[in-house]
């Protein structure tokens, strides 16, 4: 029912084939890139469908927003080229099934913060920055009613997203919300990139979490004391779906006096946390993950960062401990912002 709008003719006239030539996990020249993306668009098998680590980055690399990654996922499913072993796919699909009753629907009548499937991280939205802000999806037992489902892009299962997402949007809309601040990049990417790409209607406006944080920090500007920390940022895959908002990372760091260290794997060249790669079917995936993580962390270290900032809880789970073992402190962006206004986030010493 919902169909991806992919325009093959854009690829025919494309001057760069950036989608695949810039891919950090496959070495592809322009001619091959052109041939392969066209094959994929026409429903033919391509090595790209087998070797893609599902990092989302080509969504950002394509200069005309043609959605090459969404296309890859659709074709992986159509041609039965699952990126993950079958049990992991089934496990993932089952994970999103709500099982502890219906959520309580409070009428918001305005702006809200949506925790999505991270209701157990309420400790990350405490303090002045969030004062007076109504929050939805606050109960971990009910949070899968708010799960944006986009994770299934990693599973080669666009059909699951299309099947479940309209119901999730309806649940959010029942709160009578006008503007939804998305705690997670992935929700924001779902409502502002994926939904329009496949024709799912979204009856509310979405606001990126970092845009919200930046605006709130500006409102509290008088209370900011520069944190004077050298920081690196672990960019999550789903932030590739909202590259127009990525500048808020730098903007926030500037505002709170954090030095965004110069490094190789930054912004468009950011590396995947590895969480999705390690379970893939492709030979050597576990080692590939370790290699990506090693390069990433070495780069953070060499750049002299004291802190590695996360926004994605999945990246944090995958990399947080590794980062810490390397003498760099893993911190969530909201906690760093709280530090800047003199608050002490949970567990901060």
């Amino acid at each position: 029912m919902y169909e991806l709008k992919f325009n093959e003719s854009e690829c025919l006239s494309c001057a760069t084939q950036d989608c695949l030539t810039r891919c950090q996990y496959m070495d592809i020249d322009r001619d091959t890139a052109k041939a392969e993306i066209l094959k994929i668009a026409r429903g033919e098998d391509s090595f790209v469908l087998h070797d893609c680590v599902t990092c989302y980055a080509c969504e950002e690399y394509c200069p005309v927003n043609n959605h090459p990654f969404y296309l890859i996922v659709e074709k992986q499913e159509e041609l039965d080229v699952p990126p993950l072993p079958r049990p992991l796919i089934r496990r993932g699909i089952q994970m999103g099934i709500p099982f502890r009753g219906e959520p309580v629907i409070d009428e918001i009548n305005g702006q809200t913060l949506d925790m999505g499937a991270f209701a157990d991280l309420m400790y990350l939205i405490q303090g002045k920055l969030f004062e007076g802000l109504p929050v939805i999806s606050t109960d971990p037992r009910k949070m899968f009613h708010y799960f944006c489902q986009l994770m299934y892009l990693h599973y080669g299962r666009a059909s699951v997203i299309k099947e479940r997402l309209p119901g999730i949007i309806q649940t959010i809309a029942k709160h009578n919300v006008t503007e939804v601040i998305c705690f997670h990049d992935e929700c924001y990417g779902t409502y502002t990139s994926y939904c329009p790409a496949v024709g799912i209607e979204v009856p509310f406006k979405s606001i990126h979490f970092f845009e919200f944080l930046y605006n709130r920090l500006n409102e509290l500007k008088g209370e900011i004391t520069p944190v004077n920390l050298k920081v690196a940022y672990q960019r999550p895959c789903s932030s590739r779906l909202s590259s127009d908002k990525h500048h808020f990372v730098r903007d926030i760091f500037d505002l709170i006096g954090a030095e965004y260290v110069e490094r190789e794997y930054v912004d468009e060249n950011a590396l995947c946390c590895g969480g999705t790669i390690q379970g893939q079917r492709r030979e050597g995936s576990r080692k590939r993950t370790a290699d990506v993580q090693k390069r990433n962390i070495e780069d953070i270290k060499n750049a002299g960062a004291e802190i590695c900032v996360f926004n994605c809880p999945a990246c944090y789970t995958t990399m947080g401990r590794l980062v810490a073992q390397n003498g760099i402190r893993p911190v969530f962006m909201s906690d760093l912002c709280r530090l800047a206004i003199g608050e002490k986030p949970a567990g901060w010493r």
Partner: peptide
């Protein structure tokens, strides 16, 4: 353990490593 002993299940798609 994961690569040599269980790798065959991963490659055939019958088993998945969760970390």
């Amino acid at each position: 353990i994961w690569d040599d002993t269980l790798g065959e299940y991963i490659r055939s798609g019958a088993g998945g490593f969760l970390g």
